[in-house]
Amino acid sequence: MPRTFDIIAPPEIAARIVNQICAIEQVMTVHVSPGAGVKPPGDVVTVQTTNRGIPKIMAVLTGEGLTEGAISVSTSEPISVIHQPMEGSIFKDTSEASWEEMDRMLAKESNMTFYSLTLMAIAGFLAVMGLMLNTLHIVIASQLIAPGFEPIVRISMSLVGGEPTWRTAIWHTIGGYLALMTGAAATMLISGALGLWINTGTSTYLEGDSLMTYWTTFSPQGLVITAVATVAGAVLVITNRSVLTAGVMVALTLIPIASLMPMTLILTRYDLFWRVFGRFGVEILLILGISAGVFVIKRYKTGVAAAR
């Protein structure tokens, strides 16, 4: 979909930017407000472009000192754009996010604030209750509300992009899953104190400990599902549809197996603990490796588009 760029730059840089951007075929409109920038001071250049023009515009801005702080840029997505000369291009436009938009989007959705940590802890509570009662829909609810996918893929994206934010992403990932395990452990301890463990394995529609058995068992099929779901999640980030990554979390096993680690320790089932610990580690490595591969392809395509 079309994007709007608001650029503030010193007059001499703004003039060069305008000359280069006007030559880009995918650019629809360019508006210059000389001296309108107050903080930082400078000319304001507003550009509307189709999605396919974003890599070329970013290449121009980078060449004029974007990474050195000489230029301030913000992007937005208009609700609608009517530009008759390029109506066909607008109709056929893609929905890919730029690399910078992906970075900011993942930062927003992966930073473990107080509320994000609260969601992870609640997800741990729900996962444990679902596993104790052998009730699938409660486990699915824990997977849907937990913001546990974005911090991990932010690590791989930062590494692919050569950005130092991968360290921050690691700490947010660790913090998030520690909050989840804390919620799971607290639920187990409180349930034990209240004598609720006697209900473990009972359910209205599943027999035995089928959920516990499934998530404590390695299988080639499970690894394939993780790999395919990771590709889907990375593509959703690239296509600016990160809201749908909740569905990816249902396909992944991160939340239930992370919740199983404190569960198995409290139940002194150390054999199961090492099994779920190993599966959790394999899942994390698969997500990091496969999402990195998808982001490498995105990076390559962006470079090719900017060079055209």
Results as ranks from 00 to 15, higher is better:
residue 1 M to G: 09
residue 3 R to Y: 13
residue 12 E to Q: 12
residue 14 A to R: 08
residue 19 N to P: 00
residue 24 I to D: 09
residue 25 E to I: 01
residue 28 M to W: 09
residue 35 G to I: 14
residue 36 A to W: 10
residue 38 V to G: 00
residue 41 P to M: 09
residue 44 V to G: 01
residue 46 T to S: 14
residue 50 T to M: 06
residue 51 N to G: 13
residue 52 R to P: 01
residue 55 P to K: 09
residue 56 K to Q: 15
residue 58 M to R: 01
residue 64 E to R: 11
residue 67 T to Q: 12
residue 76 S to M: 11
residue 87 E to W: 05
residue 87 E to L: 07
residue 91 F to N: 09
residue 93 D to Q: 13
residue 95 S to G: 00
residue 102 M to A: 03
residue 106 L to Y: 02
residue 106 L to N: 08
residue 110 S to Q: 07
residue 113 T to V: 01
residue 115 Y to K: 09
residue 126 L to N: 04
residue 138 I to H: 07
residue 143 Q to L: 08
residue 153 V to D: 08
residue 161 G to W: 10
residue 161 G to V: 05
residue 166 W to N: 05
residue 167 R to K: 15
residue 167 R to M: 11
residue 172 H to C: 02
residue 172 H to R: 06
residue 173 T to V: 01
residue 175 G to T: 08
residue 177 Y to E: 03
residue 183 G to P: 07
residue 187 T to M: 10
residue 188 M to Y: 00
residue 188 M to E: 07
residue 188 M to V: 02
residue 190 I to A: 08
residue 192 G to V: 01
residue 196 L to D: 08
residue 198 I to H: 15
residue 199 N to D: 10
residue 203 S to M: 11
residue 209 D to V: 03
residue 222 G to A: 13
residue 223 L to Y: 09
residue 224 V to R: 05
residue 228 V to L: 15
residue 229 A to P: 04
residue 231 V to D: 06
residue 235 V to K: 06
residue 240 N to R: 10
residue 241 R to W: 03
residue 242 S to I: 13
residue 243 V to N: 09
residue 247 G to S: 04
residue 248 V to K: 02
residue 256 P to K: 00
residue 257 I to P: 01
residue 264 T to E: 12
residue 268 T to G: 07
residue 276 V to W: 09
residue 278 G to L: 09
residue 279 R to W: 02
residue 283 E to N: 12
residue 285 L to Y: 10
residue 288 L to N: 07
residue 290 I to L: 15
residue 291 S to Y: 08
residue 298 K to G: 02
residue 302 T to W: 14
residue 303 G to V: 05
residue 305 A to M: 15
